[in-house]
Simulated scan of single mutants.
Amino acid sequence: MELYWYYGFRGMEINSLQLKTLKLKNYQFPENENDLEILAPYLHHLEISGELHDLKCRLVDVSSIVNAKLIFSIACIKDIPSFYVGDSCRDYHQVVYSLVQNNLQKLCNATELTMGTWFTEFKGVPVSELNCKYLTLVLHMKKFNMYGVAGLLRASPHVETINIELETTLMISRCNSELLDLANGDNMDLLSGVPSVEFHNLKKVKIVISSEACLKDHVKRGFEKVSKLSEFLLLNAPVLENFFIISKRRRCETCSMNCLSQYLSRLADKLLGYPRSSTNAAINFQE
C-alpha cells in the first residue's frame, strides 16, 4: 500500500497477513491533531519519505519489520506559522527527540535500515542496540551531524555492509537549536570523542556521491567530515574487505570539469595512507 500527499487520519491499524509493504510520502498533519500511530504487526517493509512539516508519527507495533526506510526531512516548528508560538521551538525538539528514540526502538530487529540526514541532527539521542546487518545513510554533505552518525554506528555492532549516499542539494533553513547541534557535532573528534567500538562483522563500506552541484569552490567542510567518518570506520572494522568510493557524475555543467571525480580521487588517495585494523581492506575508487 502506497499513500502520497495524504492528510487527516490519525491512526493506521493493519492486521492483514497479506499486506507486507507500506509506503508513506508527504503526510500532512492537521493542526492540533495527535500523533499518527501505526500498528502493523505483520508488516515487513516500511518507508516514510518526503517533507514532514510536523513529525508526529509514532510506531506502536511493527514487530515483523525486516526493511525500514526513514528518509524524510523535517522542518522546525518555527517554519510552520500556524503552529509556532513563542519559545515552542525548544519544546518541539524535545518531543521529536522522544519520538525518534521510541521509533528506533520499535525497529531494533530490522535487518536492513535506511536513514536520512534528519536522524543525525538529533545530537545526544540514546539509541538502543540495533540488529541491522545492512545500513544505508542518505546524508546531505554539509548538513549531517558527525555526533549523530557516530551514535547510529555505535548502536549497530552487527552491521555487515554500510552504504553512505551523499548529496549536495539546497538546504532548508535551520533554527538556532539545529545549527548549534550541527556545529558541535562537526567539531567532534570521532577517534577520541566516541567510545571505543569494533564492527566485527563489517566487510563492505561504500560511499557514493551523485551530486549535481559544482564542487570546485565549496563543500570543503563536507569532505572533511566524510574523511573523518571514513578514518573512523577503517580503524574499527577488523574484517573489512572492501571500501568503495564511487562517483556517479563525469562532467560538471558549471565548471566544465570533472570536479566530483577529482575530489573523490583525492579522498581515496588520502584514505590509502590511513591506518586500518584490517590487513585485507582494499580502497577502491570508481567512476
Rank of each mutant, 00 (worst) to 15 (best):
N15C: 09
N184D: 13
S128V: 07
T111D: 15
W5E: 13
Y84M: 08
M171V: 12
F199D: 03
S98G: 13
I162D: 01
F72L: 12
E121H: 11
M257N: 11
I71D: 15
L215P: 06
L215K: 05
E129D: 02
P238C: 00
I77E: 11
I14M: 08
I71F: 10
C108T: 02
K133F: 04
S173K: 15
L152T: 02
L55W: 15
H200V: 10
L135H: 02
L137A: 11
I65W: 09
E129S: 10
Y274N: 04
M1S: 06
V219F: 15
R221C: 08
K216L: 15
E241I: 00
L3S: 04
G124Q: 10
P126H: 12
Q262T: 09
H53N: 15
L152R: 00
I80T: 13
V205N: 04
T120Y: 00
E212F: 10
T21W: 03
A183W: 03
H140F: 10
L267N: 07
K220P: 00
N67W: 10
I207R: 04
I246C: 05
V208A: 13
V194G: 01
Y6Q: 07
L215H: 12
V96K: 09
M146W: 01
H44D: 11
N187P: 01
Y42M: 04
Q105N: 07
V208I: 15
G50M: 08
R90A: 15
D269S: 14
N109C: 08
G185A: 08
L104Y: 02
N15D: 05
C252L: 09
E31H: 09
N109M: 03
L130C: 00
G50W: 06
L233V: 03
D54H: 14
T111P: 01
F72I: 05
I246V: 08
L113K: 06
L130F: 03
R10E: 08
L59H: 06
L24Y: 01
S156W: 01
P41K: 01
G148H: 02
K123S: 13
D189M: 10
L229P: 10
F144P: 02
T21M: 06
V208C: 14
H158P: 02
T136L: 05
G116A: 07
I209P: 00
T136N: 05
V159L: 05
F244T: 00
I172F: 14
K23Q: 09
L70C: 03
A110E: 03
S247A: 05
C255F: 09
R10D: 04
H93W: 14
R90L: 12
L55H: 14
S256V: 12
Y4S: 12
E37K: 09
H218L: 11
T114A: 05
E31P: 00
A155Q: 01
R276S: 08
K133A: 04
L215Y: 06
N32V: 05
L190E: 02
N201C: 10
A282G: 04
V85K: 12
I283Q: 03
Q101C: 02
Y263M: 08
V85H: 08
E13D: 08
N184H: 13
E212R: 13
L190N: 06
E231K: 15
F9S: 00
L137V: 09
G273Y: 08
S98I: 02
L70W: 11
N67M: 05
L233C: 03
V62I: 11
V85F: 07
L272M: 09
K106A: 10
L190M: 04
L260N: 02
K142C: 11
T114P: 01
G50A: 12
D186C: 10
I246N: 02
V60R: 00
